[in-house]
């Protein structure tokens, strides 16, 4: 394990190598983790992936991690006996405490609560308070474990945007298991499964082009289809999945078992069975078989010979008049699909 700082930049980048916990690496085994100075890395993964342990190692709460100056906020915001205002200023100098109040205001914590006992605060209010206090500290890095988990769904994106605005050039490593949060909070995302980081890259790229099916499952890529590869064209390769021929990025020989992955958000739906304009290489006619609300979006399952999941907004659903049984054309750009060996 080593943490090094790159000199020359205004603030050093964080580079952590060969981080293992415990010694056999059974909980966390990270070969390399690097974040540019002022960068925002989201550590994303399912429950039990080791995300919290990784963050605790980085924070120094669990011994064996690197030493660097970071303000850490654990997953569960605990408030201490005393007023909310007193709790907000804990560990801060007067200047930082004033800044914490400004931040708490940004995060939507009502200043009228400051005089009252902190124990009377709701879970969401406690989280806003802890977040403001952590960001008000002077350390150049912040480590946040599920910083929005206790907030109402309706407030999360607002607070997430305020959080990003309030970093003021600080670097951040943020643990979350929510895709939307990850997309707002992170510039880059590291997908962690079984204690290991399987893929790291820009959020949009990782979420739309997972390197393998473990990452695909972790990031919730809705479409994972198995088939046999066909011929190739430049960077593209085709795969036959039942009656469908699917084009995607891949470098596989012809006639081998393979798997194609693409996100539900990469799927475009056109009403009716008329050929629609556009550059998408993959177009298949199908009928809507089911609709399911997922948070603020709607997941549409289309039977196109194989089931294909698409994510649309409630507005699109109304405009396209999508109901079960409705005919649609499913379109997926070949560059949004990845074909990997099976």
């Amino acid at each position: 394990m080593a943490a090094t700082s790159r000199t020359g930049a205004l603030m050093p980048a964080l580079v952590v190598e060969n981080l293992r916990f415990p010694e056999d690496g059974s909980i966390v085994s990270v070969a390399r983790l690097s974040v540019e100075a002022g960068g925002r890395l989201v550590v994303f993964g399912p429950n039990g992936a080791g995300k919290t342990t990784l963050l605790r190692l980085l924070a120094g709460v669990v011994p064996g991690g690197p030493t660097f100056a970071a303000a850490y906020q654990p997953q569960h915001s605990h408030v201490f006996r005393g007023s909310a205002g007193w709790n907000l200023g804990l560990g801060l100098n007067p200047e930082q405490a004033a800044w914490a109040r400004t931040l708490a205001d940004r995060f939507g914590l009502d200043p009228a609560l400051y005089e009252g006992p902190a124990r009377a605060l709701s879970g969401g209010e406690r989280q806003r308070l802890s977040l403001a206090r952590t960001l008000a500290r002077s350390e150049p890095w912040v480590l946040l474990d599920e910083p929005l988990a206790a907030l109402d769904v309706a407030d999360r994106m607002t607070v997430a945007a305020a959080l990003v605005d309030s970093l003021n050039g600080k670097g951040a490593i943020i643990v979350t298991h929510d895709r939307e949060e990850a997309a707002v909070l992170g510039e880059r995302v590291a997908v962690m499964v079984g204690g290991t980081i399987l893929q790291e890259g820009p959020v949009a790229e990782v979420f739309s082009l997972p390197v393998d099916d473990r990452v695909a499952r972790a990031v919730g890529v809705a479409n994972v289809l198995d088939g046999v590869t066909g011929h190739r064209e430049g960077p593209l390769c085709s795969i036959r999945v039942g009656p469908l021929q699917v084009w995607g990025l891949g470098d596989l020989a012809e006639g081998v078992g393979a798997r194609v992955l693409f996100g539900a958000e990469a799927v475009t739906l056109f009403p009716g069975h008329e050929a629609a304009a556009g550059s998408a290489r993959n177009r298949w006619p199908g009928t809507v078989s089911a609709l399911r609300e997922t948070g603020r979006l709607i997941e549409v399952i289309v039977d196109a010979g194989s089931p294909i999941a698409a994510l649309i907004t409630p507005g699109s659903q109304a405009a396209l008049n999508l109901e079960p049984g409705a005919p649609v054309i499913v379109a997926v750009k070949a560059t949004a699909a990845r074909i990997i060996p099976r």
Partner: peptide, 14 residues
Amino acid sequence: LSPVTREQLSALGL
């Protein structure tokens, strides 16, 4: 004191 309390206490950097 609960582990949550202790972890928050150590996270305050006091």
